[in-house]
Simulated assay, not measured.
Amino acid sequence: MQIKISARHGHLSADHQKHIHDKAEKLLHYFDRISMIEVTVDVPEHGLKKVEFLVNAEHKHDLVAHESNADLFTALDLALDKIKQQIHKYKEKIQDHRRDASLSDATAVKK
């Protein structure tokens, strides 16, 4: 898995980049079939910090989450919560799809 971190309109310190990398890496605990995570941070001198997550999962499925806040780490945590919800929903969709197919096959055999 690959993690890309980029900054717009500013610079991220090494500590900030490591913190973002560590948080993004934890997404693998929720879904291990993630191929790439791109984190883009918009850091203007004044105003809201914006964080965007792009997660590429298996079967070319892309998940996107945006969040902005005055504090960078708050925006990061809020965006992570959004992407975790999307991963959870995607994972349930995959599992339910497989389960429904096997149940319909089993009922067709019984008839």
Results as ranks from 00 to 15, higher is better:
R99C: 04
A101K: 15
D77S: 11
R33N: 10
A7R: 02
E58H: 12
Q95R: 15
Q85Y: 10
K60F: 08
H88D: 14
L103T: 10
H19E: 10
H97E: 14
L76A: 04
Q17G: 00
V51P: 07
K110A: 15
A75S: 09
T40D: 05
D96A: 09
M1P: 09
K84F: 04
G47I: 05
K93R: 15
T107H: 09
I5M: 02
I34K: 03
A108S: 13
K50S: 11
V43Q: 13
D105F: 07
I20H: 03
D81V: 08
A79W: 04
L76N: 05
N56Y: 07
T107R: 12
I3M: 01
V41N: 02
A101F: 11
R99T: 11
S6M: 06
D62K: 12
L63H: 01
A106C: 04
T74L: 08
H59L: 06
V43S: 09
F53Y: 10
H66Y: 12
D62G: 02
K49H: 11
A14Y: 00
H11T: 15
G10P: 06
K18H: 02
A101R: 15
F73T: 07
H59W: 06
A101Y: 13
A106V: 09
D15M: 02
K23S: 10
L48M: 11
L103F: 14
D77Y: 03
L80M: 12
N69Q: 11
K82F: 07
A108M: 10
H97I: 02
L80T: 05
I94T: 11
E38A: 07
L28N: 08
H16Q: 15
D62C: 06
K93G: 08
K18N: 03
I5Y: 03
K23G: 01
K93L: 10
S104L: 11
D77L: 05
M36A: 12
H46E: 14
E52K: 12
D42N: 14
E52Q: 12
L76D: 04
H9S: 13
L28V: 05
E25I: 00
H59T: 05
L76R: 04
T40V: 13
H29Y: 06
A57M: 07
D100M: 09
S6V: 06
M1A: 09
A7S: 12
E45M: 12
H66T: 06
K50L: 06
D77C: 04
D15G: 07
D42W: 09
H9V: 02
H88M: 08
L78W: 05
V55D: 07
N56H: 12
D100V: 01
T107G: 00
H21Y: 08
K4C: 02
D22C: 01
I83T: 03
K50Y: 01
E52P: 00
E58D: 15
A75H: 07
Q85D: 14
D42M: 08
V64Q: 05
F31M: 05
H59F: 08
Q2T: 11
R99I: 13
N69A: 15
M36L: 10
H29W: 04
D32K: 13
E67L: 01
E52T: 10
L72Q: 02
L72K: 04
K93I: 04
G47Y: 06
D71G: 06
A57T: 14
F53I: 01
D100H: 11
R8C: 05
K111H: 13
H59N: 13
L12P: 02
A75E: 05
